[in-house]
């Protein structure tokens, strides 16, 4: 009998950014790991001196204010080396994606240098918020997922990089196609903040599989309660987003005057 595989998951600098239950992602990895016979140890790293050698790092949260703090803190750790050398997987969310980008945008709209781990350059754009639905992706063994976005950024992928998701609903990277986030080596970058892995256990599976360098797909594992919650959200998004017509392009003040 082979010994039970075990992983260490480290949540990095959670207080530096605006939280939206991102820490529930670590708990989701532990839960999904337990169901799959993988023992997962959770660690929270709050300052560079407490950095640990983990197999999975969770970095980010929403909010422009915290990016420089993340860049400064991460720069004093081995994170970039460990992820670049394939020793660890990084899930970089929103402000975390900015921190590991090549360039990001500060609160004043100025370009700042990132840690260069994710092959993206971030540009200012207009504000967009809402619920996001992804398209199923057989290559990553993912069904349609649910997530939230709230940012005023365009995330430009560098040549050769692929988005993490393709969207059915939502704005995503605002580049070519309907891409969202970036998947490059051991970096999974996304703007979808909040309890993303808790809402989408299959994405937790993907992170675990990458951390274990597991090639074959996981056996199917149902989680009926969370799947139902996701189904209801997706149905709600599809109901609330009618096909865009000429009417929708008018300013709402003008549209209101027109007979329906």
């Amino acid at each position: 009998m082979s010994p039970q595989p075990s992983l260490t998951v480290a949540t990095l600098f959670p207080l530096a950014t605006v939280a939206a239950a991102d820490e529930a992602n670590a708990a989701a990895l532990a839960r999904r790991g337990a169901a799959r016979g993988v023992s997962v140890e959770l660690v929270t790293v709050d300052r560079p001196g407490a950095f640990v050698d983990a197999h999975v790092y969770l970095l980010g949260g929403t909010g422009r204010g915290g990016v420089q703090a993340l860049v400064d803190s991460v720069a004093d750790t081995d994170l970039v080396v460990r992820v670049r050398d394939g020793q660890a997987v990084l899930l970089a969310v929103d402000a975390g994606l900015d921190a590991v980008s090549h360039a990001w945008v500060d609160a004043g709209g100025a370009a700042q240098e990132g840690l260069g781990l994710a092959p993206v350059t971030v540009h200012p754009d207009h504000e967009a918020t809402g619920t996001v639905v992804t398209r199923p992706d057989a290559s990553l063994d993912l069904p349609a997922l649910i997530g939230w976005e709230a940012n005023d950024l365009r995330t430009e992928l560098h040549p050769g990089a692929r988005p993490l998701f393709t969207l059915e609903a939502g704005r995503g990277n605002r580049g070519e196609g309907a891409g969202e986030g970036v998947l490059a080596g051991n970096v999974l970058g996304t703007r979808l903040h909040g309890p993303l892995l808790a809402l989408n256990p299959e994405l937790a599976d993907l992170v675990l599989a990458r951390a274990l360098a597991r090639e074959e797909p996981w056996p199917r594992l149902e989680s009926p309660a969370v799947e139902r919650a996701r189904r209801e959200r997706i149905a709600e998004v599809r109901r609330d987003v009618p096909a865009a017509g000429w009417r929708d392009r008018l300013p709402s003040r003008v549209a209101r005057l027109l007979p329906s």
Binding site: V18, A20, A21, G63
Partner: peptide, 12 residues
Amino acid sequence: SREYTRGVSLKS
């Protein structure tokens, strides 16, 4: 304590 509805970090 943190709240999720506002765009302000606890630190600030």
